[in-house]
Computed example of a mutant assay.
Amino acid sequence: MSDAPVICSSCNAPIEGRIVTALNKKWHPEHFTCNTCKKPIDGAKFHQHDGGVHCVPCFSQHHSPRCHGCGDPITDRVIQALGVSWHAQHFVCGGCKKELGGGGFMEQSGRPYCSACYADQFAARCAGCAKPIVDKAIIALDAKWHRDCFTCNKCRNPVTDATFSVLDNKPICGKCA
């Protein structure tokens, strides 16, 4: 067993009393310091970044990603969307303000929207019922239609033939024409 003194990795002097062990090295408590604020790092929590050590507050303030919603550092779960970082509680629908949680969303002018708000605000409208079209559409008579709304103006059956007649800019099936 060796009685050789423990040497500080910072000042190369022997350490007597309390020893800080970090990064496989030994330090005087006052010499294990944050590279940003230069204060001793108290406790066992610190971050390594660009070859240096940083106390938790300095790392959060200077090196954590910033939330696109509020501008504050993100120290917990980060949502990456639309090319930026968000706190989970700030990644919300541009319409109803509901948290999107990193799941599916639609984008309009750089803002995220839930599918319901996107459909309500931005989707094409059906010429038959005026509701948003979020799935396949029939394009006819210079308009878009839900498949179920493209019906004969006389018998109300779906118009499924490639050719049909038109009366008052409404489809008429071959049987009723």
Rank of each mutant, 00 (worst) to 15 (best):
S2I: 06
S2H: 05
D3L: 15
D3I: 06
V6T: 12
V6L: 15
I7D: 02
I7F: 07
C11R: 08
C11D: 07
C11L: 06
C11A: 08
C11S: 12
P14L: 12
P14T: 13
I15L: 10
I15M: 05
E16P: 00
R18G: 00
I19Q: 05
T21K: 13
T21I: 05
T21P: 01
A22V: 01
K25R: 14
W27V: 02
W27G: 01
W27E: 02
W27I: 01
F32H: 01
C34E: 09
T36D: 11
T36P: 03
C37M: 03
C37P: 12
C37I: 02
K38A: 09
K39P: 02
P40F: 04
P40R: 02
P40M: 05
G43Q: 00
G43S: 02
F46R: 00
Q48G: 13
G52V: 00
H54N: 03
C55Y: 12
C55I: 03
V56T: 09
P57F: 06
P57T: 01
P57Y: 05
P57R: 00
P57C: 00
S60P: 08
Q61S: 07
H62I: 00
H63Q: 10
H63Y: 13
P65R: 04
R66I: 00
R66W: 00
H68I: 00
G69V: 00
G71E: 11
G71L: 05
T75D: 15
R77A: 11
I79V: 11
Q80W: 14
Q80D: 14
L82Q: 10
L82S: 10
H87E: 14
A88H: 12
A88L: 14
Q89M: 06
V92H: 09
C93T: 03
C96D: 14
C96K: 08
E99W: 15
L100Q: 11
L100D: 06
G101E: 13
G102V: 07
G103D: 10
M106S: 15
E107C: 07
E107I: 01
Q108K: 15
Q108N: 13
P112A: 09
P112D: 12
C114A: 14
A116S: 06
A116H: 11
Y118E: 06
A119C: 08
A119P: 11
Q121T: 07
A124V: 12
R125G: 09
C126L: 08
G128K: 07
C129I: 02
P132A: 11
I133W: 07
V134N: 06
D135W: 09
D135E: 15
K136N: 14
A137T: 09
A137E: 13
I139A: 15
A140C: 07
A143S: 08
A143D: 02
H146G: 05
R147G: 05
D148A: 15
D148N: 14
F150L: 04
F150G: 00
C152K: 04
K154V: 10
N157Q: 11
T163K: 13
F164Q: 04
F164M: 02
S165A: 13
S165F: 10
V166K: 02
L167G: 03
L167Y: 04
D168L: 08
N169V: 03
K170G: 02
P171W: 11
C173K: 04
G174A: 15
G174S: 14
